[in-house]
Amino acid sequence: METFTSEEGYVLLRLDRGDLALECIREAVEEHDIDTGIVVSGLGTFSTLNIHYVDRTDLPEEQADRNVTLELEGSWEVTNIQGLVADGDPHLHATAFDGERTVAGHLEEGCEVNVLGEVAIKRLDDVPLTRVPNEHDVSQLTHR
């Protein structure tokens, strides 16, 4: 991974073959001291795609009971990664296509870059945000 910065508050990441996408994004957020930000663009190809999504409309007590986790191998064309960084913690979603199906969900650790990856994060220094669990144990953005 290599990062580049702009005077307008952007941090741009180049992810190389074998890099782990979410782990590199977290490293860049820490390295560039991004407390609050927006992942405005993300694309690439992954050989491993790990995501989860919510498959129900009720809210069970256990967070894990709400999610379906997909751990997919192959050649995945990642057409979009986006989300927010609050309190230094990225919450990102991704959309990808393997030639037969499209999947989308919450980006998890272990997504290995196949050919390349590119991510742009816009720093927002004037809006300090954090996530706080609500009465249903769902983390929601709030001003800090």
Rank of each mutant, 00 (worst) to 15 (best):
L107W: 00
R123C: 11
R26M: 11
G37S: 04
D55F: 13
S41M: 13
V39K: 04
T5W: 06
L84G: 07
H91N: 15
V127I: 15
L20M: 10
D98Q: 00
A28F: 01
Q140A: 13
V132M: 12
E27V: 06
E31D: 12
V29E: 07
D55P: 00
G105Y: 02
L20C: 07
L70V: 07
V78P: 02
D16W: 07
H32Y: 05
C24Y: 00
N114Y: 01
F46Q: 03
L116D: 10
E30M: 11
D89G: 05
A21E: 04
G99K: 05
L49N: 01
A96H: 01
E108T: 03
L116C: 10
M1C: 12
D89A: 10
S75I: 07
T142S: 15
E31V: 09
R101Y: 03
E108P: 03
A94D: 04
T36W: 03
H91W: 02
Q82H: 09
T95Q: 08
E27N: 08
A86G: 08
V68P: 02
R66W: 02
Q82G: 14
V119T: 07
D137F: 06
S75H: 10
D19P: 03
N114K: 14
A96I: 06
I34C: 00
D137E: 15
L92P: 00
P128W: 02
T48P: 00
F97V: 02
N67P: 00
G99M: 04
H106Y: 13
V29R: 05
E109M: 11
F4H: 14
V132P: 02
D55T: 10
G37M: 01
G9D: 06
E77M: 13
D35S: 13
T79H: 03
T57Q: 12
E31T: 12
R101W: 04
H91I: 12
R66N: 08
R56T: 09
L72Y: 01
L20P: 04
E71D: 13
T142F: 09
F46P: 03
S47L: 06
V138G: 08
R144E: 15
N134H: 08
T36A: 02
E73R: 09
R101I: 09
V127M: 14
G83R: 01
D33R: 14
E135R: 14
S41Q: 12
G44E: 02
T45F: 06
N134I: 09
N80K: 10
N80C: 11
Q63L: 14
T79K: 09
E73L: 11
Q140G: 13
G105F: 01
V68C: 10
T45W: 02
V78I: 10
T142A: 15
N67Q: 13
H52L: 14
A120S: 11
V115K: 11
R26A: 08
A21T: 10
T45L: 04
D65W: 00
E118N: 10
P128K: 03
L43E: 15
G110Q: 04
F4Y: 15
V78S: 06
L107T: 06
L59S: 14
P60G: 08
E23H: 06
N50K: 10
V29D: 06
H93F: 12
A94H: 01
G44I: 03
P133C: 08
H106M: 12
A104G: 13
L49C: 08
L84V: 12
G74T: 01
N114H: 10
L70K: 11
